[in-house]
């Protein structure tokens, strides 16, 4: 095990963490402000990825496909919010879970119907192809650095949006007291639609960015959705700051854990056992992390106390 490898894994973890933040930021805002558990957030991620893949197939332009990813996801998100989701704001968690679960079934099957069951692929543009020297002697994929950069910009943008703008004030007010903000004359249903659209756009963008590294296929959204849930639970539901810190934490722990644990185990047992036990433990690591954090802080790192 070399330092170069470790640094590379660290950067991979960081890159993964930023993508998870794109997913979890929308999810935590939607829960915090509207009180909605949205399982279908992963479907928006998938829709973003497929829109990008379809656009790429027609125009062969990475940048156009990025544009398509978040705009299509936002449009689908807004349509779904206006037709179905808004009926759920005053329902209990069980109804929300069921309807958004059904939306997953619907969208997954619809996308399979349109695009077929085979995975699609997106190409990294010329500009971002290859590696770049990040430290002396350490090379890292340009595209992954680009993802970190995009994640960073969006994080800054979100913190600015919530901390400094009028919309941010409404969002924060909404988290504290929903009746209050409609009493203040804010058009709450417009705010909700807008917020849901932003969340959907971020998920769609993440779908396209990750889809370029991996493949674009039905069912790609759910594993990352569950990670995003782990993140918002660790960070404390409704807290953007919590989501940010937990995203990076989960991204790093997951990536580095999967990499380090087998190597560490190799020092005490034979390589094949170390590989199998290590990867099994590595894949459970973030769930163990979440369990520990919830035992210590039942409402997550930055969550509001339970009444």
């Amino acid at each position: 095990m070399t330092a170069e490898l470790l640094i590379e894994q660290f950067l991979n973890g960081l890159q993964f963490g930023f993508m998870l933040f794109l997913m979890s930021a929308g999810l935590t805002l939607i829960f915090g402000v509207m009180g909605l558990i949205n399982l279908a957030h992963g479907s928006l991620y998938m829709i973003g990825a497929f829109s990008a893949a379809a656009t790429f197939a027609f125009f062969n332009s990475f940048w156009l496909s990025l544009l398509a990813s978040f705009s299509c996801a936002a449009i689908v998100g807004i349509v779904v919010e206006k037709t179905i989701i808004r009926k759920l704001y005053n329902r209990d968690h069980l109804d929300q879970v069921l309807v958004t679960f059904a939306l997953i079934l619907f969208f997954s099957e619809l996308v399979r119907w349109i695009f077929g069951a085979f995975p699609l692929y997106l190409d990294v543009p010329e500009l971002l192809n290859g590696s770049i020297e990040v430290f002396s002697g350490i090379y890292y994929s340009k595209y992954r650095l680009f993802i970190i950069f995009v994640g960073l910009i969006i994080a800054v943008f979100l913190f600015f949006l919530i901390g400094k703008t009028n919309l941010g004030i409404q969002i924060r007010a909404g988290q504290h007291d929903r009746e209050m903000i409609s009493a203040l004359g804010v058009d709450i249903s417009k705010l909700y639609t807008l917020l849901f659209g932003i969340g959907a756009a971020l998920a769609g963008l993440a779908g396209a960015l990750i889809g370029t590294i991996q493949s674009v296929e039905v069912g790609m959204g759910e594993p990352i959705l569950i990670l995003a849930f782990v993140i918002i639970v660790i960070g404390g539901i409704g807290s953007i700051k919590g989501a940010f810190i937990a995203s990076l934490l989960v991204g790093l722990v997951d990536t580095i854990g999967r990499f380090l644990i087998p190597s560490v185990l190799q020092t005490v047992t034979n390589p094949s056992d170390a590989m199998s036990v290590g990867s099994a433990i590595g894949s459970m690591l973030i769930y163990i992390l979440m369990a520990i954090i919830l035992i210590l802080k039942p409402t997550g790192l930055y969550g509001k106390q339970l009444s």
């Binding site: 558990i37 099994a280 459970m284 769930y287």
Partner: peptide, 27 residues
Amino acid sequence: RTSGVYFIMITLAFAQMLYYFAISWPS
């Protein structure tokens, strides 16, 4: 120890934990 949405998520997470364990346990 938790309730509401945290309960939903933590039960989901425990199941996922076993799921990934089963997937990566070769025996």
